[in-house]
Design a binder for these strands. Structure first.
Length: 881
RNA sequence: GGGCGCUUAGCUCAGUUGGUUUAGAGCACCUCGUUUACACCGAGGGGGUCGGGGGUUCGAAUCCCUCAGCGCCCACCA
């Protein structure tokens, strides 16, 4: 045979991917069919494929390929995210290596560098997705900074501004001193860090007294503008109205009272630094305190830091602690664990900082999105548990800080004129802005000459990356700029979104919000949250730990199909996936199993001879079994239980098809197979391939194309998903019984070392003759020369029982009577125990009266079956003794 | 500090509104097998008092309470 006995994925994967591309199967355009749309969660433009992407995109591809087979117009839109802060950080780092500081470059020069970088490294990940087999419509590849995408973002900004939902405000925001930008609340990750609680003693002005306060950040005393006590705290009553002196700075600050202060915590006395703490800011506003910002934008100290000017905050913390100690201001320190906000991207410790930023009011916008998930269920989350998380965030939603002090991204379309601070207009273009500005001046009557473009200065900041990706499902179809275009009307709303729960707020919730605001309807029907991919020891996969396998290397070793199967086999939705390469091996083994099933079929010689009865039965049974599995599979898909769907197919193909059906119809060595059976089994195999294709696209297409010559129109990728038909339960039940008989015979063969070559005889003692139909199948699978139905137990034979039937295999030589008796007794005691438990139920009047009829009937049947079996067993025992 | 979720065989997990055998699957494990698709295989087999305790019920892995352990999300306590 010229077909190799092992499937070699490396040799065929590229070929079939090119074939699919060449025939444009991935491309979609609107037509009469029902659309099925998925938009990819756009990976960062600089990203490299990791296990999370592999899982995520495999699931999307499974869904897309299945939809395609089901005759839908499947459209999977790929793309990339410009990832403002992450990309800018990378470009800055690259420039630094070349000895260039970002500040050395103009905005234009820097952006040129960034675009160069994007063109050079961007999109690597998309090429990697192709290796995985992802059937994206590559012609639609979008980038969040494409001209039309950016124009959409700007249009939305202007619109929201005009609706009064975007405002500029001087507020306490999260400052990332490394990236030198503000972040949204969601971009701050709180981490527990071991630190110290410093007890500092502040002298009271014009007295010898002191007051001790506790702080985790002694360096901020330089920005202190008050000390606060709780008015109810009697310990400090004598300090009311007095003033304190800030150590080192020597500044005199008031002692104020506010019941915000927790009497129990620390010393019950709080230092107030309005510039560097949100609560202190609130206190400051309430009590009219001075605001002293002691930091530069990189979190080194400024001139308010006195002799610490220019030094980093953490260095200052150590040094000032020493100085305070030397000056006698440090009372003591104690270890203290506190939650420190860090930047999601740069990992830098966040500083609360007051600054002018742009915000989007969320409360009103969030309402339809909240309702869609929790009330109308127009958008469904899988698994459901994320609805709680979603609800909590949406109900407590806060305004979104959308401005970033970066260059890589969409520049905020606000134009300042006049004093350059408070006078600004928001417009899509400078020209429109100019017109608006002149209008504004007219209105105020301050016009001495019309402004020109040179008088306008555009806001330096760019928008948060998520402010572009929240429009993704709409903007990829140009639905913002041309809301009535055919594409968006056809493809929107999309169907499924597959993503990680880590971006439920960043992205998912906001897309739902923008969907309702800009399309008046949901952006997608279902959201499938995958889990995190972890290693065997449950550790998160990360670059630092080096525990993340190289995705492409995995594909090389196990084949894309093997890796896909490996990933999916144990990834229940929303549960973390403990990745283990053994699973890929399992996937690879499965591919090989299917391959060899194909080899077997190809090896047969076909002849026009009568169809054996066993083959006919086997084929009919498998048809029923297939339908039964198909029903389960569709059910699993409907509930997004992708892993279970795959496992069902796995068992169907491996156990039912390969181990049972093929063995039943396999012709005797070197004999031909009858044409009827051959054609039927090919057809069944092809049905299997269809079910398998979404999971193992390469292998299945390869096999499909080799079963017989196919035109491009007959490719598997666009074949028809099997149709549901009624399941013939009788066939399934009958086969179940037959297979138990087969197992019984095989067990005896094994126990007595009877080689398969040696034909056996079987006699059956039964009342119902329920398995008579299956005689041919049983005989074929276990090599029986004869099956006879008898009225009495056979002498000198080994026996086993299935239900209430007893089976005998006469063998030459001695039958170990004792062993037989022992075996029967074990079975007997089990069955009796079982019967007892059933009878206990049945003799309970309340059970019989209260339980549903069906349940009672079932119990009665169980009892009857058990009794029949006991009778059989006892008879056998009597015969032996 | 608040909220949510999890705990079932060695591992990873199913177990759908309490009632189909005295709880299932895949992998792993053990035994046997160079049978003519596949040793990336076949046949057979062992393995769980469903985290502990209490309760509701005719009946609980499934509902309630409680304890323990784990995980996630949210939150301005210096």
């Amino acid at each position: 045979m010229d077909i190799p006995s092992k499937y070699e994925p490396q040799k065929v994967e590229n070929h079939w991917y090119d074939y699919w591309l060449q025939h444009n199967y991935f491309h979609s355009k609107p037509d009469d069919r029902e659309p099925y749309t998925v938009v990819i969660p756009p990976p960062n433009v600089t990203g490299v494929l990791h296990m999370g992407h592999m899982l995520n995109n495999t699931i999307q591809d499974v869904l897309i390929r299945r939809a395609r087979l089901m005759g839908k117009n499947a459209c999977w839109v790929p793309g990339m995210d410009h990832a403002s802060i992450a990309t800018e950080a990378k470009v800055v780092a690259k420039l630094k290596e070349e000895g260039i500081a970002k500040s050395d470059l103009s905005r234009e020069e820097f952006l040129k560098q960034a675009w160069d970088w994007k063109h050079k490294y961007g999109g690597v990940i998309l090429e990697q997705l192709k290796k995985l087999g992802c059937s994206c419509d590559w012609e639609r590849t979008a980038f969040t900074m494409d001209d039309d995408m950016s124009a959409s973002v700007i249009k939305v900004f202007v619109d929201l501004f005009q609706k009064g939902l975007i405002y500029r405000g001087y507020r306490m925001v999260h400052w990332d001193p490394q990236a030198k930008t503000t972040l949204s609340d969601e971009e701050v990750i709180y981490e527990e860090k071991q630190g110290l609680l410093y007890y500092l003693s502040y002298p009271i002005a014009e007295s010898k007294e002191t007051v001790t306060i506790a702080t985790t950040r002694p360096e901020t005393i330089l920005g202190d503008t008050a000390i606060c006590i709780n008015p109810k705290d009697e310990r400090y009553a004598h300090l009311k109205g007095k003033k304190a002196v800030v150590p080192i700075a020597g500044r005199i600050i008031p002692i104020i009272e506010d019941d915000y202060v927790d009497i129990e915590f620390g010393t019950g006395c709080l230092k107030v630094t309005p510039a560097h703490d949100t609560n202190d800011k609130t206190l400051g506003e309430k009590h009219n305190l001075e605001i002293i910002d002691i930091f530069n934008d990189d979190a080194s100290l400024n001139s308010h830091g006195l002799h610490y000017e220019g030094k980093d905050r953490f260095e200052v913390r150590k040094e000032i602690a020493k100085e305070l100690e030397a000056g006698g201001f440090l009372v003591k320190t104690e270890p203290y664990i506190n939650k420190v906000g860090t930047s999601e991207r740069t990992k830098a410790v966040i500083e609360p900082r007051l600054s002018d930023q742009w915000f989007l009011k969320m409360e009103q916008l969030a309402q339809p999105a909240l309702k869609a998930v929790l009330e109308t269920q127009e958008v469904r989350l899988f698994p459901k548990k994320f609805e709680n998380t979603y609800r909590h965030w949406m109900e407590n939603i806060r305004d979104w800080n959308i401005s970033r002090q970066l260059w890589w991204g969409q520049q905020i379309p606000a134009y300042y004129y006049g004093d350059g601070q408070n006078d600004f207009v928001v417009a899509e273009t400078p020209e429109k802005a100019l017109a608006l500005a002149n209008e504004a001046l007219d209105g105020r009557g301050t016009k001495d000459r019309p402004l020109t473009l040179d008088d306008l200065k555009q806001d330096e900041d760019v928008l948060d990356t998520w402010f572009s990706s929240w429009l993704w499902p709409i903007s990829v179809f140009n639905g913002i700029l041309e809301p009535d275009n055919d594409e968006v009307k056809y493809y929107y709303p999309t169907n499924d979104l597959v993503t990680g729960p880590d971006i439920i707020f960043f992205w998912v919730a906001r897309m739902i919000i923008s969907g309702y605001e800009y399309r008046g309807e949901r952006p997608f029907e279902n959201v499938y949250f995958t889990g995190l991919v972890r290693d065997k020891q449950r550790r998160k996969m990360s670059k630092q730990l080096g525990n993340s396998p190289d995705a492409l290397e995995l594909i090389r070793s196990y084949g894309a199909d093997g890796v896909r199967v490996g990933l999916l086999l144990s990834s229940a939705a929303g549960n973390d996936l403990m990745f283990d390469e053994d699973l890929c091996q399992q996937g690879k083994n499965f591919a090989n199993k299917i391959w060899n099933g194909f080899r077997l079929l190809k090896g047969w010689e076909v002849a026009d001879i009568p169809q054996p009865e066993a083959s006919k039965l086997g084929i009919a049974w498998y048809g029923a079994k297939f339908q039964q599995a198909l029903g389960e599979i569709e059910n699993h898909f409907a509930k997004y239980r992708i892993s279970d769907a795959l496992m069902t197919i796995y068992k169907l193909v491996w156990d039912d098809y390969s181990s049972w059906l093929l063995e039943i119809i396999k012709p005797v060595y070197q004999q031909p197979i009858d044409r009827t059976s051959y054609e039927a089994v090919i057809a069944l195999f092809e049905q299997n391939l269809k079910l398998l294709h979404p999971f193992m696209p390469f292998l299945t297409e390869e096999v499909w194309q080799h079963i017989t010559e196919r035109t491009p129109e007959e490719a598997l990728i666009i074949a028809q998903w099997p149709k549901r038909e009624a399941v013939d339960e009788k066939l399934i039940k009958g086969f179940e019984h037959a297979s138990e008989v087969v197992s019984g015979i095989r067990t005896i063969r094994k126990e007595k070392n009877l080689p398969i070559k040696e034909a056996l005889e079987l006699s059956v003692l039964n009342a119902e003759k329920i398995d008579m139909d299956w005689d041919t199948v049983i005989a074929k699978l276990t090599h029986l020369s004869n099956i006879s139905y008898v009225e009495a137990a056979a002498e000198g034979a080994l026996s086993f029982r299935v239900k209430s039937n007893e089976y005998f295999i006469p063998i030459s030589g001695v039958v170990n009577v004792e062993a037989e008796i022992k075996k029967i007794n074990e079975e007997l005691s089990y069955t009796k125990g079982f019967l007892q438990s059933v009878q206990k139920k049945l003799s309970n009047e309340r059970f019989v009266n209260n339980a549903p009829q069906q349940v009672v009937a079932l119990e009665k049947k169980k009892a009857a079956d058990a009794e029949a079996k006991i009778a059989t067993l006892e008879k056998s025992l009597a015969n032996l003794e």
